Simulated scan of single mutants.
Amino acid sequence: MIRRQHVAADFFPEAEAMRAAYEEKVGSAYRQSVQWQYFCDPRMYTYLRTTPQQVFPLPLWRRFDRHLRQWCMEHAGLMPTGEPNLHLMVNGCTLGLHSDFQNGTLGFVYSLTRWQSRKFAGGETLLMRDGVPSYKKHHVHGEALYELVPAQFNQLLLFDDRIVHGTPTIQGSMDPLEARIALVGHLRAASPVVTGPLDEAAAREVVTGFHRALAEPLKLFRDVQGVMSFRLAVAAGGGVESVEVLTDNFVTAQSGYESDDEVAAARALVLDAAAKLRFPAAGGPSKLVAPVLLPLPELRPIEIAVAHAGRPALLREALKAQLKEVEALGFRIEPQGDDFAVREPLAGTIRIESHRIVASFDAPMWVPSQREHFQAALNEKLGMLARYAG
Rank of each mutant, 00 (worst) to 15 (best):
H6M: 12
H6E: 12
F12Q: 03
P13Y: 07
A15C: 14
M18T: 09
V26K: 08
Q32C: 01
C40Y: 11
D41L: 09
P42R: 11
P42E: 04
M44S: 10
L48V: 02
R49C: 02
P57V: 10
L58T: 12
L60H: 03
R62H: 10
R62Y: 10
R63E: 07
R66E: 14
C72D: 01
C72A: 12
E74D: 11
A76C: 14
M79K: 02
M79E: 10
N91H: 15
C93H: 15
T94D: 09
L95A: 13
S99N: 11
G104F: 08
G104A: 04
F120W: 04
G122P: 05
G123A: 06
S134E: 11
V140L: 13
E143Q: 15
E147P: 00
A151I: 00
L156S: 13
F159V: 11
G166K: 08
P168Y: 14
I170N: 10
G172R: 02
G172K: 03
M174F: 07
G185F: 14
H186D: 13
P197K: 02
L198P: 00
D199N: 11
E200R: 06
A203N: 00
R212A: 13
P217H: 13
F221I: 07
V224M: 07
Q225N: 02
Q225M: 07
Q225Y: 01
M228T: 01
A235F: 01
A235G: 02
A236C: 13
G237S: 03
V245Q: 00
L246G: 00
F250L: 15
T252Q: 12
A253K: 13
D260V: 06
D260C: 15
R267H: 14
L271T: 05
A273M: 03
A274Y: 00
K276W: 09
L277Y: 08
V289R: 00
P295W: 12
L296Y: 09
E303G: 10
E303M: 12
A305M: 04
H308D: 03
G310E: 07
L315Q: 05
A318T: 08
K320H: 00
K324F: 05
V326W: 15
A328D: 06
D338M: 14
F340N: 00
R343E: 05
S354R: 13
S360V: 09
S360R: 15
D362Q: 01
V367M: 14
P368K: 14
S369I: 12
H373V: 07
Q375G: 01
G383N: 03
M384G: 10
L385S: 01
